[in-house]
Amino acid sequence: MAASRHGYCGAMRRARKWCARAGSLIVAAGLAAGCGTGAPASTSAWQGSADRTLGQALSGLGTARVALRLEAQDRAPHDFTVVTVTDAIDTTGKEVSGFQVAQPPDGLHRANAAVNQALDDAMSLLVDVRIALASPGVDGAGAGQLIDRVDALRKKLDDLDQQVQSSPASVGSP
């Protein structure tokens, strides 16, 4: 009985020790990965993050474009097109808010502001599409106008993304 109790205590001590080591490792890895807030990102990290977020905005707008076409041609139930655009807003919104709270590199504040502005435009257009789809619904002409706005903004985002990748310091300069 005493022996098994001793074995049990030993196992518990070893388990605690392992937990403590694993905990320290996780904290250390978190600090090493830059979990601390407020530190500016490196230029390449900012570029990667901007690329992902602009890509997500392009994806959201692309989804909205397909939903508008389906609604205008009456090829899918109304509720489905609304859910589709709502999903696009949710997914894009999460990525955009993650990007917007991060600290940009010191030399890229203007570029960061330009990207943020473009992302805000994308979010507002997605919301406009959802509102138009949900109530009162869109006809062919209304859908056409929204699709034109979507296409124009998609082109702008695409150009911006290329500029962010090739010469980030020039983004947002007058």
Binding site: S59, T63, R65, V66, A67, F80, T84, A88, T91
Partner: peptide
């Protein structure tokens, strides 16, 4: 062609 990154089931049905 629209560079959509599928992140929702609704997009799979489109």
């Amino acid at each position: 062609p629209l560079q959509v990154d599928v992140g929702a089931l609704s997009q799979v049905a489109l």
